[in-house]
Amino acid sequence: MTSRIAEWKRISAGGLVSNPGSSERVQTGAWRTRRPVIDFSQCTHCMICWVMCPDTSMQVYKDRLTGVDLAHCKGCGICASECPKHCIQMVPEDRRV
């Protein structure tokens, strides 16, 4: 957008925000210091990590866990702590996977 009016000055009537889920453009993955790495050979796709994720960052396609949304995952480690199969490891971001 090339509007000359600053974004915060273009406030809608009543402060209405009409773009549901637009916070996705904020890449909170930049907060992370360690990333979850899933061992898919052990994963049973029980979805405990998916339901326990505070950042809606476990990616699921047709009943199957497919990966982690690293653009938004804040690296809290709840998934690794709660995984019944212990197949998620938290790896420091400065280490290569």
């Binding site: 889920g21 916070s23 909170t28 505070p54 950042d55 809606t56 804040k74 480690g77």
Partner: peptide, 12 residues
């Protein structure tokens, strides 16, 4: 609830 909200990592 979409991702990208500002709650702390590990917030319940």
């Amino acid at each position: 609830l979409a991702s990208g909200h500002g709650l702390c990592p590990g917030c319940s």
